[in-house]
Measured scan of single mutants.
Amino acid sequence: SLTLTVRGEEAVRRWYKWAQAHNLEVEVETHGDEYVLHIK
């Protein structure tokens, strides 16, 4: 499992696509303009 902090929706989309390509689940938490992604 992997936890990432990114800024901006574009980065979130990029990681989301990456995770889907690897059959992984993604949980997204929003903290202001930062997003915490939990990839499992």
Rank of each mutant, 00 (worst) to 15 (best):
L37R: 00
E29D: 05
R13P: 01
A21G: 05
W15V: 11
G8R: 03
G32Q: 05
E25R: 11
V26E: 00
H38D: 02
V6F: 03
L2V: 09
W15N: 00
Q20G: 04
A11W: 06
K40T: 12
H38Y: 11
R13L: 12
N23K: 09
L2Y: 09
V6W: 01
Y35L: 06
E27Q: 11
L4A: 04
W15P: 00
G8P: 01
K17H: 10
H38I: 13
K40I: 10
L2D: 04
L4P: 02
K17G: 05
A19W: 02
N23F: 10
V6T: 02
E29I: 12
A21D: 13
A21K: 11
N23E: 07
A11K: 04
V6H: 01
T5G: 03
Y35A: 03
A19E: 00
L24H: 04
W18L: 03
V6E: 02
Y35G: 01
E34N: 11
Q20S: 10
E34M: 14
E34I: 15
V28S: 03
A11R: 06
R13E: 12
V36Q: 05
S1N: 14
Y16T: 15
E27W: 14
E27T: 14
H22P: 00
Y16P: 01
G32K: 05
E9G: 06
R14Q: 12
T30A: 15
V6P: 02
V28C: 12
E29Q: 09
E9D: 08
G8A: 05
V26H: 01
I39Q: 00
V26G: 00
T3K: 10
G8Q: 03
D33E: 10
N23M: 08
H38C: 10
R13H: 10
V28W: 07
K40V: 08
A19P: 00
S1R: 11
T5D: 02
T3V: 12
E34K: 11
V26W: 06
I39N: 00
Y16F: 15
T30E: 13
A21Q: 13
Y35W: 08
L4Q: 03
A11F: 05
W15F: 09
V36N: 03
L37K: 00
L4S: 02
R14P: 02
T3R: 12
E10D: 11
L24M: 14
L24A: 07
L2M: 10
V6Y: 01
V6S: 01
W18R: 01
S1A: 11
L37Q: 00
Q20Y: 10
L24F: 13
H38N: 07
L4T: 05
R13W: 08
E25N: 09
L37V: 09
L37W: 01
A19L: 10
N23Y: 08
E25L: 13
R7W: 12
K17M: 12
K40P: 04
R14A: 12
E27A: 09
H38P: 00
K40Y: 14
V26D: 00
E27K: 12
V28F: 07
S1V: 13
A19I: 07
Y16N: 05
I39P: 00
K17A: 14
E25D: 09
D33I: 06
V12M: 15
E25G: 05
W18F: 06
H22T: 02
T3G: 04
Y35S: 03
Y16C: 15
H31D: 10
T3S: 09
T30K: 15
W18G: 00
V36H: 07
H22L: 09
A21N: 10
W18D: 01
Q20A: 12
H31Q: 10
K40L: 08
G32R: 04
H22I: 03
T30S: 12
T30W: 09
V12C: 14
Y16D: 03
G8V: 03
V6R: 01
S1G: 14
G32Y: 04
E9P: 08
E10T: 07
R13V: 09
E9L: 14
R7F: 13
Y16V: 15
D33W: 04
T30R: 15
V12D: 00
G32L: 05
W15Y: 05
V6Q: 02
E9Y: 09
L37F: 04
E10K: 11
E10S: 08
R13K: 14
I39D: 00
T3E: 06
T30Y: 12
W18P: 00
V12T: 03
T30H: 13
V36F: 05
N23W: 05
D33Y: 06
E29R: 09
S1L: 11
E29F: 12
R14T: 06
G32S: 04
R7Q: 12
E27I: 15
H31S: 10
E34F: 15
D33A: 07
D33S: 07
E10F: 06
W18V: 02
V12Y: 15
G8C: 09
T5P: 03
Y35I: 07
Q20W: 09
V28A: 04
A11D: 08
E29T: 12
E10L: 08
V6G: 02
H31I: 13
R13G: 07
Y35P: 03
V36L: 08
S1Q: 13
E25F: 12
V26F: 14
L4D: 01
Y35D: 01
V12P: 00
E27R: 13
K17Q: 14
V12A: 12
T30L: 12
I39H: 01
K17W: 10
W15G: 01
E9T: 09
L37S: 00
H38M: 07
I39C: 13
R7I: 13
L37D: 00
T3I: 14
Y16G: 04
L4E: 02
R7L: 10
T3N: 07
